[in-house]
Design a protein around this nucleic acid. Sequence first.
DNA 1: ACAAAAGTGTTTTTGGTACACCCATGG
DNA 2: CCATGGGTGTACCAAAAACACTTTTGT
Lengths: 235, 235
Amino acid sequence: MLDLYNKQSKCLVALDSIIFGFDGEELKILLVKRGLQENKETWSLMGGWLQETEGLNEAADRILFEHTGLKDVYLEQLAAFGNPKRDPVMRTVSVTYKALINIVDYDHKLTNKINAKWFSLKKLPELLFDHSEMVSLAVERLRANASLYPIGFELLPDKFTLPQLLNLYEAIFDTTFDKRNFTRKLLSTNILTKTDEKQKGFSKKGAFYFTLNKEKYKDTSSFNFLSLTNPDKIL
Amino acid sequence: MLDLYNKQSKCLVALDSIIFGFDGEELKILLVKRGLQENKETWSLMGGWLQETEGLNEAADRILFEHTGLKDVYLEQLAAFGNPKRDPVMRTVSVTYKALINIVDYDHKLTNKINAKWFSLKKLPELLFDHSEMVSLAVERLRANASLYPIGFELLPDKFTLPQLLNLYEAIFDTTFDKRNFTRKLLSTNILTKTDEKQKGFSKKGAFYFTLNKEKYKDTSSFNFLSLTNPDKIL
DNA sequence: ACAAAAGTGTTTTTGGTACACCCATGG
DNA sequence: CCATGGGTGTACCAAAAACACTTTTGT
């Protein structure tokens, strides 16, 4: 019985994460220049190896924590990549994750330590191996998710304004939405709670902050959030 | 450099496929009793090991072919499962695929050879390891896919009737649809071509056969196929 | 003639889309 | 007082949903 297992060839398993952040203007992803690799001059996704005793999600969490200091981050498996030639050094399979983080929570010290940098999705450098393919898939899935579930909030601080939310969705879908229709739709879901507080400093009038109603958020995890059924508006 | 790789622990990579079929009444999946394993009495998904020189999709194709004799099957990666305790014999990571096949194309001789059997989704036996979890995910994704893309045709013969198509979608979503609204919607997409031929033997009147208009099918690969936006109707 | 399944239209309701003006404030 | 961005309502149209009767034919 064990023979059946031992005859088979084993394989290194890597985990690579596409980490999305939003700075209020553009959608960005976090890339690293791994100082210790021969491909010194190439940016790559944050990644690491699967250890003997940990599960895939666990390993992805650990790697994210080691690099960024962040815990309890929204992290979701995307897909496994296993082209036998994807890594020229050795046969590896990479399991990819997409992470959504609030960009201001990010620990900047650590960023510098590991030589990481936020890149606008529209101006990505050349990436290691098949990492560009991974990013494309991640963006595709992010859009699919964001149109079905109120997922975008993971990218925003706890308090956010409606214009910020609009900007975020416009950045995700790389399009524009009508301000009135967008806010009406969002408010009709009842997942937002208006606060008395206004944003200072950015605009003269100041926009009210909203918070997410977590209970409603859970309830509605399976409704179609923005019904982006009209393909004309997307790209 | 190579050291960085060699220090890491390697892992067996398995591929397991959730194979969906439709017999005109119910949605089914194909399970096997692997005669050579110690878990002799447990049904499991069709699976095999990743070989040194093949990619993941390639391996999934090969395994499906070896077991069923089928080539050019709709096969799509679902997810990787890597709980360190999922396989008690040895640490493995399993990459899962979902396959959609036309049940009548299936080679029955081979079915018997490998001890495979179709099970209704509603009456699944206990499954090996984490295979039940894999099936749940596959069903979830099948539904998501089927509501966005005209994917269900993979499960039907080249010629099919509208009532068959309706049955299929009702089976996928485990609900009922209004016959008139359903056919209107389907016909409005122009992906169906009506033939002169009528189904014999099943009903007295007989239903017209339709075929899929492949060109339109490609065109429309990204529209929302059935807009199943009304959650009331689903489950 | 009757049972069983196929086929077909209309009305109502809902929700998406388009569109423009006033408001509050800081400078 | 004026420039900047924030906030709001209405009318139209397309598409989803609800709904029931006639047709065909094998027995």
